[in-house]
Design a protein around this nucleic acid. Structure first.
Lengths: 157, 157
DNA sequence: CTGGGATAGTTGTTCATACAACAACTCGCC
DNA sequence: GGCGAGTTGTTGTATGAACAACTATCCCAG
């Protein structure tokens, strides 16, 4: 076996993959049992709810949700069909479109919150405690920001 | 807007999703540019490489890779077709099968390691530093273990 | 004003992946 | 011998990514 296979960097990255996978599995299962939202849908709804006018441009939403633009088009198609969000034309740029939270979507989100918060309480807060959790969030935020518009040029290619 | 939408728990969980998404995107892009392995394939190879006999049972591999057994079946199909791994019958339990690293697979893994380690160095180690990284890994491990067969931390299992 | 390049979003195709449901099988026990 | 629990691996269905083609629109330079 190659010695680098046990490198701490690989282990740490693997841990991120495994923790993400395990948490999404259990939290997602609980969320879907209590509502009929998947984590992906929930994340879209909550991002819209937190945005001024309960709306975001398609491309902005794609970026926040880490989806491709075409992937987002289809996701919005399905959520629009479920009446949770709707598209609205952008008055200042007629190429653009907003995704807007509907009343149905806001209600679904609010109905899902108690169960979801409880789920996060048990699976995220309880194992770490509030203090270490905020440390974790800060580190993850650093990683995210650095991986997105990273100060160091990403592709040397 | 509902006040709970800004809850720290939701933010922390969202950060996990975003950091995971952003890192997988950039590290995966670099890995695929340097080799023709995806992150998923790489993770399978490295887990096999670390295991005695360079082999794992299908179900064990599925568990480690946070994949369902059915998802693993198809993944192993494609990787077997690419000659990176092969299936081998388990002599002691005729229901079972091993996934075994082939020489081709070991060579592909070794060829991928330098670029991948460099990628992790820049995107994971550099933003946090080695010390905070090990903290992060420890917290993620706690979350993972708790989310999997969750034995609560306060009382011994 | 006008021509042309850049941008926003949609659509179609193809492939990879996720899980649930399912069938086939082994093992251990009576 | 055979029942039943648990495990293993294969199918159906759905979602998401990458890529390219296409429309409509914006904006800038001349």
């Amino acid at each position: 076996m190659h010695p680098d296979c046990d490198d701490g960097r690989i282990t740490a990255f693997g841990m991120l993959l495994e923790a993400h996978g395990a948490l999404v599995a259990v939290v997602g299962r609980e969320l879907e049992a209590a509502t009929d939202l998947t984590i992906g849908w929930f994340e879209v709804l909550i991002r819209l709810a937190r945005s001024p006018g309960q709306r975001l441009r398609m491309s902005e939403l794609a970026s926040q949700a880490a989806l491709s633009t075409s992937g987002l088009t289809r996701l919005v198609d399905r959520m629009e069909e479920a009446r949770l969000i709707r598209r609205e034309a952008c008055p200042s740029d007629r190429r653009g479109a907003f995704a807007v939270l509907t009343d149905t979507g806001a209600a679904a989100l609010e109905a899902a919150l108690p169960a979801h918060l409880d789920s996060l309480e048990r699976h995220v807060v309880a194992p770490l405690g509030a203090e270490r959790l905020s440390e974790l969030a800060a580190m993850l935020e650093t990683l995210r920001d650095r991986a997105r518009g990273g100060p160091p040029p990403p592709p040397g290619r």
